[in-house]
Design a protein around this nucleic acid. Structure first.
Lengths: 346, 346
DNA sequence: AAAAACAATGTAATCGGTTACATTGATGCA
DNA sequence: TGCATCAATGTAACCGATTACATTGTTTTT
């Protein structure tokens, strides 16, 4: 029941008749300590089951070697892939992650930010919630010079780097692809245009329409929370439209899938009657029938890039300040859900 | 560029002409400090932007208020739901989480355990990787009296509590359901029987067969890693079988889905030719056609229970030692993929 | 051979809290 | 009035590292 006493550098020093300074230096492999002494110290540390006390160091160094991560949700394929990328880099560099989810609400995001701040993270990686309006809860970090990097769901901030894809271009490609398939009445389902990803995808959609002399019709713009259920509701709305649209471009795969299922149930043929394009390349896109055309983008890489930038900055290797935005490549993956014209055999 | 100096209790004490002891006590709302003094201190702390230094406390108290979480993967719907449950409880109780994934490999799990240990977590919540054989990497926690709770993928350990469902019973129900539908040649797809979840599901499957006078046929037992791709390969194996089986009970939904898709492509009708039951109630189970019959179990609740037990134990409220296992309820959700006999209309 | 240079190690202050024990002043009671 | 009691606050040791600066002994230089 009683806790076994921890071994400290004092214990090691006493046993070997050296000073704690020497032990401390030896343990961090300082070249100033002789090889012989180092070996003795390493061996004894091993033998006595010494373990490093981060808190003593943190207290002294005023650093924590901890990175705070706030994501909208963990249970999306994309986000957990990003986190895997972040983790691989962070682990490698000796940083620990504190991960929390905002559950898409600004309130939880604010709470999480406060927790991170009080835990004195050395840096922050953030992807914003749907409904976050102002980002003043991140000012505390800026004020204390704690670097902050946004990824995917970013915001324009003079002091922060962003890691993301070109959402505008991707949406442009998706929409153009539908137009090339002969679609003229294209619905766009997206979330409240607070987040860059939705603003930009909408812009890309509009641009594609404009470039092909198609009018933008407000009625074809459906705003919801992009959940699968929201997709089902969107289907109901679509079924009321007259004329029926001939394509849907949804800002994520989940919502597209919900919508497709509901439309199919209503007797709509996909892609013959309505073609579909989603966004994210979620695994579900290859389960739904017909398989969903979507935009693929590198989540793992995005996590790696964000973490690497942050850590480089923390280590003073290169400053974040110079870089404002890191854009990653994305691509349109064409599957059956959008192919009205069968061009190449599969 | 220079870091603004942090405000400490010494600064507060100096400004108010009280001792640091009084400030420290006031800040933790110790009743021994007078209300007037407390108020003064709280107000000044607020005004000066004081923030609590966890590291000083941790160093002194030899606690970290941190819980380590190791899961096989984050990007599964089930696991991220569990984590959401853990997080809600931990946050509420003032604990911080360190989350990491083993990526289903023992090697990574060992590394993660070491990291957690060196970060001096107060307690551990673990769900084991596929291929973890021995769990000696958790001995270090036991030895230091750091409580350890397993959830879902558990192991029998005299010192540890487990939180899970009755996998045997669930698998028994699933299999019995298939038998009730008239199936006689039931394939079971599962993972290496190292983890309780797979051992128990297999046992439940066998038991159901035995109770209905059906023979257990080794050929009908397919072992793989339960990924979607593995499901596709399983389909190829199934197609070689003679006679063709009339049902598949897969130990997770993902694999079932992969298998179903491949079989459908080969012209097999589901459930007419082969009925399907999965496990987990992953969202994908309602996307696949026909919708997948599966076992639903409460991930969020499981996370809550595991975290609550651990924290109660840490706070000395109730000892873990007494409780060895916490079983949660699970249920069979019948959908189209297994209904050969249409009993009730939908 | 004395001085300078250097390698190896030691001393002691510091980080910011917690808390056992000590002190102070006010109140209660005989 | 004098002593016990108690509420409120203070003093100082402690947690375990880091590191600037000091010290020691050895080697190189002239």
């Amino acid at each position: 029941m009683t806790k076994p006493k921890e071994v400290t550098i004092y214990d090691l020093a006493r046993k070997l008749n050296v000073s704690i300074a020497t032990v401390s230096r030896a343990l961090k492999d300082d070249p100033v300590v002789s090889k012989k002494t180092k070996k003795k110290i390493f061996d004894l540390a091993e033998e006595m089951g010494y373990r490093y006390n981060h808190f003593a160091r943190n207290l002294r160094e005023q650093r924590t070697y901890t990175i705070g991560v706030i994501v909208p949700r963990l249970n999306s394929y994309f986000m957990s892939t990003v986190i895997a990328g972040i983790e691989s880099v962070a682990n490698n560099e000796g940083y620990t992650l504190i991960i929390s989810q905002s559950s898409e609400t600004a309130g939880k995001e604010i709470t999480n930010a406060k927790t991170m701040f009080n835990n004195r993270v050395d840096g922050m990686l953030v992807s914003l919630a749907y409904d976050t309006d102002d980002i003043s809860h991140f000012d505390q970090f800026i004020k204390k010079n704690i670097p902050l990097i946004f990824f995917d769901r970013v915001t324009d901030h003079p002091e922060c780097t962003s890691v993301l894809i070109d959402n505008r271009k991707s949406a442009y490609e998706a929409t153009s692809h539908l137009i090339a398939q002969g679609c003229r009445h294209i619905v766009h389902i997206t979330a409240t245009p607070k987040r860059n990803v939705y603003i930009d995808r909408l812009a890309g959609y509009k641009q594609a329409l404009a470039d092909h002399q198609l009018p933008f019709d407000e009625k074809y713009l459906l705003i919801n929370n992009l959940s699968q259920e929201a997709g089902v509701q969107a289907a109901a709305t679509i079924l009321q439209m007259n004329p029926l649209p001939d394509a849907v471009f949804a800002a994520n795969d989940n919502c597209a899938v919900g919508c497709m299922m509901a439309l199919k149930k209503a007797g709509i043929r996909i892609p013959a009657d309505i073609a579909f394009v989603g966004f994210n390349n979620d695994p579900v896109s290859t389960v739904i029938e017909p398989n969903l055309t979507t935009i693929n983008y590198p989540g793992y890489k995005m996590g790696e890039m964000a973490a690497a930038s942050l850590i480089n900055h923390l280590n003073g290797v290169n400053s974040i300040d110079a870089t404002n935005t890191i854009l990653l490549r994305s691509e349109l993956i064409i599957r059956a859900s959008s192919q009205k014209i069968i061009s190449d055999s599969e």
